[in-house]
Structures are given as structure tokens and as C-alpha cells.
């Protein structure tokens, strides 16, 4: 009991005025702004696919890009909420990325079924996964570092969402950059690794987001 009183006295003495963290939506929009700027800079450096204007008339492609963009938005909001111990008392909002992933899977299944006869496979394969991983390192590392300044209690989930956020940005960049119409290639070498790395994020979050 004496120890507890001593601790309280010490903590009270250490208490300096401290600005409260911004609202999670503001934090999420900052992260989103950085991520989209990063994606645009990436596209400016690597160039967009030459047939982008034509592809934007294709419903499946546009739907894929829209859902990817929404996934980026949802995962940034979810990551920002998970940075607060009580998820800013909006726990359901943290599940948005899961709902978006379900929509994304349905969309990919429909696109896969509609890909008949299948579009020719590109000559490369794992290089796409490598490119996505390389591009995702900066936003992923930055998001996890930013989350460490808060107080994450669902560390595994927060890690997964942060990695998903970074990989969605990266996958979006590659989809707008690479000339490739093969949906099976996109599923195997773009989106499946994205999901695998998001689950690795669970493990990463448990280690990186300790406080």
C-alpha cells in the first residue's frame, strides 16, 4: 500500500501538461494523405500504365481500384482507432477492413469467373510480389512507428491492419503502374501475398507495439 501511495505521488509529480492526441479521424486522414502522396510520387517516378485511360472504362478494373481505395481508407481509420486503448469507443469501426476484404474477395471471384477466355499471363511472376513488398516497407514502417506513440492494446490486430494499409497502398500503386490484365496473376502475385503479409503483421504488431 505504501508502494502504491509512493507511486501515485511520483506520477503526480511527473505530470506535465500534455496535449491530448488528435481525433482518430484526423490522424487517419493525415496517414491517408501521406500514403496517397507516396503512391502518387511512386506513380510519377515509375509512370502509370500506358493503357490506364482505356482500362478506366472497364467496370471490373474500376470496381477493383475503388474497393482498393476504400480498403486503404478503412484500414487507415481502423489503424488510427486501434492506436487508442478503447478504440475511441468505436470498436465496430475497427472491423471495416474485414468487411472491405470480404467485398474485395467477392469482386475478385467475379472477375476471375468473367475472365473467359483468360487474359494472357505476363512473363514475370514473383517480381510483382517483391515490388509490392519493397514499396510497402516505408508506409508500413512509418504507420507502425506512428502507432507506437499511442497506446495500442490489441497489438496483433493493430499490426495486421497497419500492414494491410501499407500493402493496399502498394498494391494500388502496382495495379495503376503495371500493364497486366490477367486476373489470376493479380490474385496469386498481388493480393494473396498482401493477405499473407497482413497476417504476418499480427505477429509483428505483438512485438513492435509493446508499451
Amino acid at each position: 500500500m505504501k508502494n502504491l501511495d509512493h507511486l501515485i505521488a511520483q506520477l503526480a509529480q511527473d505530470n506535465a501538461p500534455r496535449a491530448a492526441a488528435s481525433h482518430p479521424l484526423l490522424i487517419a486522414s493525415t496517414w491517408l494523405g501521406y500514403a496517397l502522396a507516396y503512391c502518387l510520387i511512386g506513380l510519377w517516378v515509375s509512370g502509370t500504365r500506358p493503357d490506364l485511360a482505356a482500362r478506366l472504362h472497364n467496370v471490373e478494373f474500376v470496381a477493383e481500384i475503388v474497393v482498393l481505395l476504400t480498403l486503404v481508407l478503412a484500414s487507415s481509420i481502423s489503424a488510427a482507432l486501434l492506436a487508442f486503448p478503447d478504440a475511441y469507443q468505436k470498436p465496430r469501426w475497427t472491423l471495416w477492413p474485414l468487411a472491405l476484404l470480404a467485398v474485395f474477395v467477392v469482386l475478385l471471384v467475379l472477375a476471375y469467373a468473367a475472365d473467359n477466355p483468360p487474359a494472357p499471363q505476363p512473363l514475370h511472376s514473383w517480381q510483382c510480389t517483391m515490388a509490392i513488398v519493397m514499396v510497402a516497407i516505408i508506409p508500413g514502417g512509418w504507420t507502425l512507428w506512428a502507432m507506437r506513440r499511442f497506446a495500442v492494446i490489441r497489438r496483433g490486430m493493430a499490426g495486421s491492419v497497419a500492414v494491410l494499409f501499407a500493402f493496399s497502398v502498394s498494391a494500388l500503386w502496382l495495379r495503376l503502374q503495371e500493364v497486366n490484365d490477367s486476373i489470376s496473376h493479380v490474385i496469386y502475385w498481388h493480393y494473396l501475398p498482401m493477405l499473407i503479409f497482413a497476417s504476418v503483421g499480427w505477429w509483428l504488431g505483438k512485438r513492435v507495439l509493446r508499451w
Binding site: 501515485i8 506520477l11 511527473d14 496535449a19 491530448a20 492526441a21 487508442f84 486503448p85 469507443q89 497506446a151
Partner: peptide, 26 residues
């Protein structure tokens, strides 16, 4: 109590205190 001290900047006074506290306690 140490965790409350470290995480106090994540509470802005605009929402109930107890859910925030119990999340940390659990």
C-alpha cells in the same frame, strides 16, 4: 497506474473515462 500515466494523452475528455480505464486495466 503506470499505463494510465503513459497513455493519458490518448484520453481527451470528450468521451467517458471508465471504458478507457477498463480497457487498459483488462
Amino acid at each position: 497506474l503506470l499505463s494510465v500515466h503513459k497513455a493519458r494523452h490518448t484520453y481527451d475528455g470528450g468521451r467517458p473515462y471508465l471504458p478507457w480505464l477498463y480497457a487498459i486495466a483488462r
